[in-house]
Design a protein around this nucleic acid. Structure first.
Lengths: 343, 343
DNA sequence: AAAATATTTGCACACGTTTGCAATTAAATT
DNA sequence: AATTTAATTGCAAACGTGTGCAAATATTTT
């Protein structure tokens, strides 16, 4: 149906190889022949068949992007940055929504390989699924999760440091009863944050009894709500809460307010990821995140290098620095405030 | 690098065509030959090269999905449903973020065609960009926008009816000074809603002076805020606002509350799209939307039919019914409330 | 103007797969 | 057991493109 180089060749009375070479600028000179070929190509509306090109060149300009839930703003914001970085590098991205389902993840993995993608970027469903990406013929980049698999590349925020910063910030604000609400199901990301959080409290000499580690009761907002409510009912109300993500933080806020306490005053709340919601005036949540643009760029880098230098490009690691986005939910410095009241 | 059909042929001492036929179940009988071929294919970890298959079959299992802003929850939620419907039908989707840029839209269009996609699903940047999709060799489905282009298929909510329903709902609640905040830049979707809104007010006998049509001052939350603030400052405060989308509605809410009025009591507010934010306890926005699942399924249908029956499958139209999601921002029935106060 | 050099051209094959055709082989029928 | 029928096989060509090679042509140098 579509117009091919052979059609152009027929019109110009040359072989199809000549057309191919002219169209790919393999000709140094500018003869009337070349001009004729180029103009008829334009006239006929020729579009190269990328499939055929990739078949013969044995390289593709497609990458797979596997995401647990594209409707979740955290993931959709990252997806945008990855797509943008990929497009800038001339890559097209296959979007694969794994739906938190390891079987779908596996299915997409195979499907992507059959489609001859140049690489796979994946935000894995869980730490256990990393092994599925061993020994693939294309580079694999884990996004937002570190891994022990030596073959896999990954790009991740320095989670330990981020939580350390958060705890330090709380302490600097005068907070003394600190709490970290962990991810409902454990993974490297969550436990790294826990580690950093605890380290900071220890370094500041906070007593262990004043540091609570609890676990979100479910993935969404309600999980954070239930966990916090439980804490309050047990008379263990903290004066500062670091939540595994912004959704959980939102749930925590709800529980805090429901208990008649004021967020930012009685309890400081901080989340992770800086999803769009968090910037809404009614929410105004203080949160920690890496730069998603950096994340996206770093994600395709190992894939670019693979095709360029034909090196293995495996096991590359990129650690991004966390940024705190200060908003309303952590209030002001308590110590300073007490001073001003006394004054 | 990868193992091909020829590798299997060599091992089994048959021609590669035989392998192809066995692997594609073109053989009625179950000979030891076929079993050997299948088992060695499995043993060698054979994965068919989809590129080559599609080249020879002249059909692909890839569709392009063009979205103005994947980080916007409205679009990411639709994207999820489209991807899901496509995956169920055996299609892979190329994600293309057009960034509200017509040039990017055009660039992706060409790129997708070169990649030999089976069809293009697009949420267009503006009504003017529809013409770019005339006369393509594959079916094009416009999502969330109707069009006058006869060749293009589209799937869209019945916007006129939706706004009609909204206005009727307001009126049934006892509201009498109605306002529609239109999209910052006009399009079919927004003007259809305006039409339905006005029709309902006319039918109910609301005086023209009590119906305001204003325009959001910008795409995001701030646009709705500014538009509403202006209305209030001009002493034209409505008692019911229908906003073009949930973001604008959120902005309207902010302006209303800032003026010391109570949303749901003094002013009812309704949006469109039912984005995830709107269901948050702190927001709890009443809103209208079609079923995104239906939307996604309807989007790939014209593409499926194209490849199946080899019919043109152009100019197909699917109208989805609106659903109101009742939450807190429209309050209760004012009339009933007045009664209970008197009683 | 002739020789040396640089460029372009067409042919043929390649990429990995599917498929029509004629020949072969196996199964079912008489 | 011989014949008809059915299924399988290998060959070759195709999908649209890129490329090494030797021959042909154009350009530059002497």
């Amino acid at each position: 149906m579509s117009v091919t180089i052979k059609d152009i060749a027929k019109v110009c009375n040359v072989s199809h190889s000549t057309v191919s070479r002219v169209l790919n600028n393999k000709c140094a000179r500018q003869t009337p022949r070349t001009e004729q070929i180029i103009s008829t190509a334009k006239a006929l509306g020729y579009k190269p068949n990328t499939l055929a090109q990739q078949l013969v060149k044995r390289s593709s300009n497609m990458v797979g992007l596997m995401i647990p839930d594209i409707a979740n703003p955290h993931y959709s914001e990252i997806t945008k940055c990855v797509e943008d970085a990929a497009a800038c590098a001339g890559y097209r991205v296959f979007l694969c929504n794994t739906d938190w389902d390891v079987r779908k993840e596996q299915m997409y993995r195979d499907s992507l390989l059959e489609s001859q993608v140049a690489g796979i970027i994946v935000m894995p469903v869980c730490d256990e699924s990393h092994v599925m990406f061993r020994g693939l013929p294309v580079p694999v980049v884990l996004l937002g999760s570190r891994t022990l698999e030596p073959e896999l590349s990954y790009v991740v925020m320095d989670n330990e440091r981020a939580a350390h910063m958060a705890a330090e910030y709380f302490i600097g604000l005068g907070r003394r009863r600190l709490c970290y609400i962990a991810r409902p199901v454990e993974n490297y990301t969550s436990s790294d944050r826990e580690k950093g959080f605890l380290a900071a409290t220890r370094e500041a000499g906070i007593a262990a009894k004043d540091v609570a580690i609890t676990r979100s009761k479910g993935h969404a907002l309600k999980g954070g709500y239930r966990a916090t409510k439980q804490l309050i009912e047990q008379n263990k109300t903290p004066d500062a809460i670091l939540a595994f993500n912004d959704f959980i933080a939102l749930g925590a806020i709800q529980a805090v307010e429901e208990a008649g306490l004021t967020v930012g005053e009685d309890v400081a709340v901080m989340g992770f990821d800086d999803i769009l919601f968090s910037s809404l005036p009614k929410i105004n949540l203080t949160t920690i995140t890496p730069s998603n643009e950096e994340l996206g760029k770093a994600a395709i880098l190992p894939i670019l290098q693979q095709t360029r230098d034909d090196l293995p490009a495996k096991g590359q690691v990129k650690i991004l620095q966390p940024h705190m986005v200060l908003r309303a939910t952590c209030g002001e410095n308590i110590a300073r405030k007490r001073l001003s009241i006394q004054a």
